[in-house]
Nucleic acid binder design. Structure first.
Ligand SMILES: NC(=O)c1ccc[n+]([C@@H]2O[C@H](COP(=O)([O-])OP(=O)(O)OC[C@H]3O[C@@H](n4cnc5c(N)ncnc54)[C@H](O)[C@@H]3O)[C@@H](O)[C@H]2O)c1
Ligand SMILES: NC(=O)c1ccc[n+]([C@@H]2O[C@H](COP(=O)([O-])OP(=O)(O)OC[C@H]3O[C@@H](n4cnc5c(N)ncnc54)[C@H](O)[C@@H]3O)[C@@H](O)[C@H]2O)c1
Lengths: 245, 245
DNA sequence: AGGCGCTTGTGAAGACGTGCACAAATCGCG
DNA sequence: CGCGATTTGTGCACGTCTTCACAAGCGCCT
C-alpha cells in the first residue's frame, strides 16, 4: 500500500471520506462478498479467512484478498477478517449506509414481480415509487404502494429523494422514460428493456437483459456440442487445456 | 486473416462447423449486435457500416469490427455489412439456428413474469416446461403452459429435450434444483436466486442478481456524491453517514 | 520470551481486452 | 480504365484484470 493512512474507515473520520477509486471489476464483486458475509454472520461466524470467504463467494482467494486490500481493509494475519467489521466497510464503500430510494417505472408483467420483491429492502434499498403511463394501472396498490402516473415524476422525485430509477417498460418507451428520469436529476438507471439508452455524461446505466444471458448460454451449448461431436479421431478428449505455450 | 476458408457459413456446410473459439467478451456482445441488426432489418436497411451498427449497439466501432472479424465475417470494404447475412452468421455462431428448449423452475413472483415474457420466443428460445415444488401451484395454467411438479423433471427433460434450465426459486432451494437439473443432463443454467451454485465441470452457470446491480449503481452514486462534495474547498459537507462503531 | 504455523497483503508476470491508426480492398464514376 | 472516396480488417501499444508465490505480520503454545 502506498498513499493512504486512513483506509477510509467509517468509524471516526471527521476527515475526508477518501473513497479510493476501486477497479470496476472489484466493485462488481463487493456485493457478492457482502452477501456471503451476511450469510456467515447469520450462521454465527465472527471471523473468516480469505480462503473461506472466497469459497463462499465463488472466487479465487488471491483475487478476494486483492479486492479487499483495495479498500484498505482490515484483516489480521494468521487469523482472517472480522466478519462484522468487513460488512461495515463494504457497506460503507458501496454507499449502503444510507438507504437509497428507488423509483420503478413500468408496472407490467415484470414490474409487478419487482414491486413485490423483498430483496430490495433487505439489501439496502427502498422502493419509493411505482409509476406507469397506463391510466388503468394508476391507482392500483401493490405491496402497500400505490401506482402513480409517470407524469408525477418531477414531484415524486423531490418528495422521495429518488436516487435510482428502474425501467421496466417496453423497449419503445425506455428512452423516453430515461430522459424523464434524467430530467428530474436521477443519475443511476437500471434498465430491463432490451435497448440501448443514451444518457448524458455522469449518468450511469446498467442493463439486465434476459435474452442476452440465454444467448450466451446457447453459444456455450453450441460449442460444447461441436466439441463432443468432432474429436472422435485424434483431439483432446476432455480438459486437455493448457497445451504448449 | 489467416487460417479459415469457410468462416463457418450456416448455409450448406456438410463440413465441419468449425466454431472459432471467440473471446468471452466478444460472445457477450454478439447478442447486442444481433438485436441491433434485427432492428435495422425491420426498418428496411440491407447493409450497415461498422460505424452505424456500433452506434446502434452502443459500442466502439473498432471493437465491433474486431469482434466480427473473429467470426470470420463477411463485410465488404467501402460498403459495410450485409444485414441479413450477418444476422445469419451470428445466429449460427450463437447456436440459435435450433430453437432451444428452456425449463423454468420456480413459478412464483418472478417466475410468473418470466413465464409470460414474449422475449423468449422472439429471441430464439421456447419455454418448454414450468415447474414448481408447491402442490398448490401445480396444475395452474400460464400462457398456455401447465405448471408441473418439479419431480417430473426427469421425464420432461427427455420429452422436451431441455437444453437450458432457469432457476427462479428462493435461494435456499436453488442448489437442490441445480443438482436436479444437472442430474437430468442440463449443462446450462441461468440462476436468478442470490446464491452461488456449485456444479460439475462442463456445466455453465450464469446469474442475474438485481440487488448486485443496484449496489454497483449505489457505489457510483456514492462516489459521485463524494467527488462533487469535496473539490470545493476541503471538507466533506455530506457523507456524515456511519458514525461510531 | 521465543519459535512455529497460519494467513494476509502485494510484487511481478502473464493473459486478456481496448482503441488508435492505417494499409488493403471495394465500389462508383468520369 | 483508372482514380478517389469509403470502409473493412488488423498490427500495435496500452491499460486492466488475474493469478502465483512469498515475505511480513500475528497469535498461540511451550
Ligand atoms: N416479463 C419479463 O419476464 C421480462 C424479462 C426480461 C425483460 N423484460 C423487459 O422488461 C420490459 C417490461 O416487460 P413486461 O413483460 O413487464 O411488459 P408489460 O407490457 O407487461 O409492461 C410494460 C408496462 O410499462 C408501461 N409503460 C409503457 N410505456 C410507458 C411509459 N412511457 N411510461 C411508464 N410506463 C409505461 C405499460 O403501461 C405497462 O404497464 C420489457 O422491455 C421487456 O422486454 C421483461
Ligand atoms: N421477484 C423478483 O423481482 C426477483 C428479482 C430478483 C431476484 N429474485 C429471486 O428470484 C427467486 C424467486 O423470487 P420470487 O419473488 O419469485 O419468490 P417466490 O417465493 O414468489 O417464488 C418462489 C417459487 O419457487 C417455488 N419453489 C420453492 N422451492 C422449490 C423447489 N425446490 N423446486 C421448485 N420450486 C420451488 C415456490 O413454490 C415458489 O412458487 C428468489 O431467489 C429471489 O431472490 C426475485
Amino acid at each position: 500500500m502506498s498513499q493512504h493512512r486512513h483506509p477510509g474507515a467509517p468509524g471516526r473520520a471527521g476527515a475526508v471520506p477518501a473513497l479510493p477509486d476501486l477497479p470496476e471489476a472489484t466493485v462488481a464483486r463487493l456485493p457478492e462478498y457482502l452477501r456471503a458475509l451476511h450469510n456467515l454472520a447469520d450462521s454465527g461466524h465472527e471471523t473468516v479467512s480469505s480462503e473461506g470467504l472466497s469459497a463462499a463467494a465463488g472466487v479465487n482467494s488471491a483475487k478476494l484478498r486483492k479486492d479487499l486490500s483495495h479498500l484498505g481493509s482490515y484483516g489480521t494475519r494468521g487469523v482472517g477478517y472480522d466478519v462484522a467489521l468487513l460488512i461495515e466497510q463494504i457497506e460503507y464503500v458501496l454507499g449502503l449506509t444510507q438507504r437509497r430510494a428507488v423509483a420503478l417505472v413500468g408496472v407490467g408483467n415484470l414490474g409487478h414481480a419487482l414491486a413485490g420483491y423483498d430483496g430490495f429492502a433487505s439489501r439496502g434499498f427502498r422502493i419509493a415509487a411505482l409509476l406507469d403511463a397506463d391510466p388503468s394501472r394508476v391507482g392500483e396498490e401493490i405491496n402497500g404502494l400505490v401506482v402513480r402516473h409517470v407524469d408525477e415524476l418531477p414531484v415524486i422525485a423531490v418528495q422521495e429523494s429518488i436516487a435510482i430509477g428502474v425501467i421496466a417498460t417496453p423497449a419503445a418507451a425506455a428512452q423516453r422514460v430515461a430522459d424523464q428520469l434524467v430530467a428530474v436529476g436521477v443519475t443511476s438507471i437500471l434498465n430491463f428493456a432490451p435497448c440501448v439508452l443514451s444518457v448524458p455524461e455522469g449518468v450511469d446505466v446498467r442493463k439486465v437483459d434476459l435474452a442476452i444471458e440465454l444467448q450466451i448460454l446457447s453459444f456455450h451449448e453450441h460449442r460444447k456440442a461441436s466439441l463432443t461431436a468432432l474429436p472422435g479421431g485424434l483431439a483432446a478428449t476432455e480438459t486437455q487445456e493448457a497445451i504448449g505455450t
